[in-house]
Write a protein that binds this DNA or RNA. Sequence first.
DNA 1: ATTCTGACGTGGG
DNA 2: CCCCACGCCAGAA
Length: 109
Amino acid sequence: MKAEPNFFDKVYGVVKQIPYGRVTSYGAIARYLGSSGSSRMVGWALNNSHNLEDIPAQRVVNRLGMLTGKHHFGGTTAMQQLLESEGVEVKENQVQNFKELFWDPAKEL
DNA sequence: ATTCTGACGTGGG
DNA sequence: CCCCACGCCAGAA
């Protein structure tokens, strides 16, 4: 088996590298991987990340900073609680200061 | 095998 | 400024 980094694995790698108290968007990751149009696959990959605990998927939101995937955290405000626990202000399922907290892998990496 | 949906994003009207 | 439609790829019915 080749240790070839697949799209999904790449997503995990990037998400795991997201610094504390920082957030990023699906499109940013997809773009970093070279598949700017496949932003959906990023979400799909995060969905698979449910098996992994090293994937801070709560730091990954859509381009609007909205916690679109909070329903997948198995709870209601679980995702928001996690983000707020890191110092990320969340209001109405939306990340406040998203622009400042935004961590672009293509730019930071 | 076909069809639809899904943690998105961008563009056009 | 708001709403609609399309594109992406993969998995499930």
